[in-house]
Structures are given as structure tokens and as C-alpha cells.
């Protein structure tokens, strides 16, 4: 049995059904050089350690929409919490151990009369501590420009039909606030507990591009 060497010239103990994939290591961009230079200086001057940087990256990669779903599920089962969440999102998510500062959280609630949609037309501001990394489409120019100018068409492309009697409220995340949508609780979930509810709540429903369907029986 051959020892496992770098891919490409090793002896095989497994079958390949494809041609070798090219490495995508192109030339570095200016930003990559800048990041490496700053990082190496921080290490060299003893301001940060490599382990601290690694831990921070690991912590950032661990963020996921499950945090936001936990917040929404709590608001659905606890009217007092829902009220605090709409009043002061930053403080309410801190109750659940989620820190959003230095930015501030505004939670906007979908109702029978209003549907909320979040966008950042200037860049890609997003409540990462609650929802993880933003999806690629959220950062794309097409979504950023069209979500503010033709939101109903964009929503329809996500499969979300907004009835005429419901107002569409777009929130352009241009400065120090971050936004999360509190979706409507689907019917057929009356007996469910918080954890079961949280499992129903999608990332996209908290951005506002979809609504939540009743659970399949």
C-alpha cells in the first residue's frame, strides 16, 4: 500500500472518474497582499498571536442562521420577549447570549398587512452574528439594485407572492443598524416547542425573501 503523497503523482488506492482538477491559485490581488502584510506585522510586533487569529476565524465560521432561528422561535412562544425584541433588538438578543454590537439590531415584524425585506444597496451589511455569512446573491449587484426598485418582482422570483393588500417595506441597511425579519409563524405549529419551531425557520425567511410554509404532516 502506497503512502498518501500529494495528489497528482501518488499511487492510487481509490478510483478517479475525472481528469485532475486544476488548482485555482491565481495571482494575488492587492487586497490579499495587504491582508498578509498587516497580519504579519501584527504577529511580528506581538499584538496578536497566530492562535488568536485562528480562533477568531473559527468563531466567525461557526456563526449560522441557527442563532437567528433561536431568537425567532423564542419571540413566537413568548409575547413579552417578542415585544422586547421589536423594541430593542440589540438588548433582546443579548438575553439569549448573542452579542451584536458595535452595530445595533432592528427587528422588523411581518404581519397580515406588512412584509419586510432587507438589503444593503451600498455593500453587504448583514447581521452575521445572527445569520452567519451572507449568501452570494445578497452581495450581488442584481439583488442590491433590484430589491429597492422592484421588490415585488424580486420576491416573486424567490417564489414569494405578496398579495395586493400587503405593503412591502424594504429596509436599506446603509449605516450602523443591522436588520432581521421576524417571519410570521406558520399555521399547524400551535403545539410545537421552541426547538421544534426553530428547525422550521430558514435563513431566507429572516432576510425576508420568503415566507414560511406550514410544516408537512
Amino acid at each position: 500500500m502506497a503512502t498518501h503523497e500529494t495528489h497528482g503523482q501518488h499511487d492510487h488506492n481509490h478510483a478517479h472518474d475525472h481528469a485532475p482538477l486544476p488548482d485555482r491559485d491565481g495571482a494575488w490581488s492587492d487586497a490579499q497582499y495587504l491582508e498578509a502584510a498587516v497580519r504579519e506585522l501584527l504577529l511580528e510586533k506581538g499584538i496578536l498571536t497566530a492562535d488568536e487569529i485562528r480562533r477568531q476565524i473559527e468563531a466567525m465560521d461557526r456563526r449560522s442562521p441557527e442563532q437567528g432561528a433561536r431568537v425567532v422561535a423564542r419571540a413566537w412562544v413568548d409575547p413579552g420577549y417578542r415585544q422586547r425584541l421589536l423594541q430593542d433588538g440589540t438588548a433582546a438578543v443579548r438575553e439569549l447570549g448573542i452579542e451584536i454590537e458595535p452595530v445595533h439590531l432592528i427587528v422588523v415584524e411581518n404581519t397580515e398587512r406588512e412584509h419586510n425585506l432587507v438589503v444593503c444597496t451600498l455593500c453587504s451589511c448583514y447581521p452575521r452574528n445572527l445569520l452567519g455569512l451572507p449568501p452570494d446573491w445578497y452581495k450581488a449587484r442584481a439583488y442590491r439594485s433590484r430589491a429597492v426598485s422592484e421588490p415585488r418582482t424580486v420576491l416573486a422570483e424567490f417564489g414569494t407572492a405578496i398579495p395586493d393588500h400587503v405593503a412591502v417595506r424594504v429596509h436599506d441597511s446603509t449605516a450602523d443598524m443591522r436588520y432581521m425579519v421576524l417571519p410570521r409563524r406558520p399555521s399547524g405549529t400551535e403545539g410545537m416547542g421552541e426547538a421544534e419551531l426553530a428547525a422550521l425557520i430558514s435563513r431566507d425567511s429572516m432576510i425576508g425573501v420568503v415566507t414560511l410554509a406550514p410544516p408537512k404532516p
Binding site: 432592528i106 429597492v148 426598485s149 422592484e150 421588490p151 415585488r152 418582482t153 395586493d164 405593503a167 412591502v168 417595506r169 424594504v170 429596509h171 436599506d172 441597511s173 446603509t174 449605516a175 450602523d176 443598524m177
Partner: peptide, 26 residues
């Protein structure tokens, strides 16, 4: 810093949604 609410039809000539639709901008 404020959130200012604009009516969509005031922002986009020929806006094809409803007159109640809005955009809030910081």
C-alpha cells in the same frame, strides 16, 4: 442617525408595486 421612510413611488418614476410600499434608509 435616523431611519427615513420613503414612498416607493416617490423614489422610482413608474414604480410598479403598490402605493403603500416603502423603503427605509438610514
Amino acid at each position: 442617525l435616523y431611519r427615513v421612510r420613503f414612498r416607493q413611488q416617490d423614489l422610482w418614476p413608474g414604480y410598479r408595486g403598490k402605493s403603500e410600499d416603502t423603503v427605509d434608509i438610514e
